[in-house]
Design a protein around this nucleic acid. Structure first.
Lengths: 106, 106
DNA sequence: TAAATTTGGACATTATTTGTCAAGAATAAA
DNA sequence: TTTATTCTTGACAAATAATGTCCAAATTTA
């Protein structure tokens, strides 16, 4: 199954497996080390450019990281809602509908 | 199946079915009419308190409106991503995991 | 202990969201 | 068509949230 670790945890694991200090990864990403520390502990959000750079640095699948990243975003938005399962179903149907119809569903 | 109209469209339909002018609903919700106009056309976001008030005003199912609202939020966050289906799957698994485990998944 | 690494918190800066207004466009009524 | 009503648009300020930066404290490693 898919990796259910948060994007922060996945980044930290990649970094630790590579035995790279946080300070160094922060430098590569051109962000403050305290910012990266917070990202790895899910106190701040990464952005997609960072995810892409991280995938390159650790030679890992960019798409998997992006899935971890966006699923965290989705969880953050709806985790408190009891009907989360219906919400996700409807969201999927909406996206599919937008994709398949020429005209944009407004 | 569920209603795939955007939350804005659903609000507008409820209001028009009740033959209530936008101006009046805006007053009931205590927001500017231009703000409501934008919400109905999905240019601005409603919030959950508005949704709840609207459900009461038009005596409709609050939960269905909330599902429309949150699914729009989710669509907005991930619609540009090709792996949206996987993202939603992982998001659901994450939420279920959080719910079933005593300890919070961090 | 000393060195290196990571974390926490404060703060300024920037970006995004929200509220408000007034004028213009569209629609309906007279 | 004129008038009245309703709705939309854009501009702007105010409030809120996100981001970048610094530095000292805490933690971990050697």
């Amino acid at each position: 199954m898919q990796n259910l670790d948060s994007i922060g945890t996945q980044i930290r694991k990649l970094r630790e497996e590579a035995e790279m200090p946080l300070r160094k990864l922060a430098a590569l990403l051109d962000i403050d080390q305290s910012t990266l520390s917070k990202i790895e502990r899910d106190e701040r959000r990464a952005n997609t450019q960072m995810i892409e750079q991280i995938a390159k640095i650790f030679k890992t699948d960019k798409e998997k990281l992006l899935i971890a990243f966006y699923s965290d975003v989705v969880v953050y938005e709806i985790h408190q809602e009891s009907s989360f399962s219906e919400i996700l179903q409807v969201a999927e149907a909406k996206i599919e509908y937008q994709r398949t119809s020429k005209k944009q569903a407004k």
